[in-house]
């Protein structure tokens, strides 16, 4: 943990102290800091924005009711997001049994995957360059200055992420959209570091492919 993380965790623990005393401003601060991210992560798991909002509301009630039980063994953020994922799973499961994230991940990872279509590489028996590019990546025609083009690119990325399998979508949302470290993602989702990395790999590769499709 670096100095900044330490400072921010000290600050968050103080905020929790004030919350325990019933300070409404402390609640507002926590809500402002975490609700947008909570909504995004909830949305990556449940099917609609309104369900995501219900789950997040439920999460905050869970935070308030769980305040006295929080022992500070994880960061405040990790604790809040664990409450979120529990609520989201309960909600998402409906009447069927809840599938743990680790099992969902195992299911996704049992599917075959290549980052790039195999046909884009030369065959194994190629006399000089086996498994090297036959159809190398194409340069992207982007003008980062064009705000419209940029907005369109971001829409493409969002659409590609929306189309991913659930665990890949959750992992890329937390890692690349929210900017979390891998360890914390693993803690919240209960998946191994190795599996988290493979999920991230698949997600990023798919999104890059989608951009290549549209930007060349």
């Amino acid at each position: 943990m670096n100095v900044t993380e330490q400072d921010s965790s000290v600050a968050e623990r103080r905020l929790l102290e004030r919350l325990r005393e019933g300070d409404e401003r402390a609640f507002s601060e926590l809500v402002a800091a975490h609700t947008p991210g909570l909504l995004r992560v909830a949305r990556s798991y449940v099917s609609t924005q309104s369900v995501a909002e219900e789950v997040v509301q439920d999460t905050w009630l869970g935070v308030l009711r769980g305040l006295d039980g929080f022992e500070g063994r994880s960061s405040v953020r990790t604790w809040i997001y664990r409450i979120l994922t529990n609520r989201a799973q309960t909600r998402g499961a409906g009447e069927s049994r809840t599938v743990p994230f680790a099992a969902l991940a195992a299911g996704e990872l049992s599917e075959g995957f290549t980052a790039v279509e195999p046909e884009r590489f030369l065959p194994a028996d190629h006399d000089r360059w086996p498994h090297h590019w036959a159809a190398p990546p194409r340069r992207w025609e982007t003008s980062p200055e064009g705000a419209l083009a940029h907005a369109e690119t971001l829409r493409l990325i969002q659409a590609a992420i929306d189309g991913l399998p659930t665990m890949q979508r959750m992992v890329i949302t937390m890692r690349d959209m929210e900017g979390w470290p891998s360890q914390e993602v693993c803690e919240v989702l209960g998946v191994s570091v190795a599996n988290q990395r493979v999920l991230l790999h698949r997600a990023r590769s798919v999104v890059r492919n989608a951009l290549e499709e549209h930007l060349t």
Partner: peptide
């Protein structure tokens, strides 16, 4: 070709980080 691939992947991550969060 792989340098280009890596550059594009990095660009993808940067762009994903620019997706804005909805306000509450």
């Amino acid at each position: 070709a792989c340098q280009l691939y890596l550059g594009q992947l990095r660009q993808t991550l940067t762009l994903a980080g620019q997706l804005v969060q909805d306000d509450v």
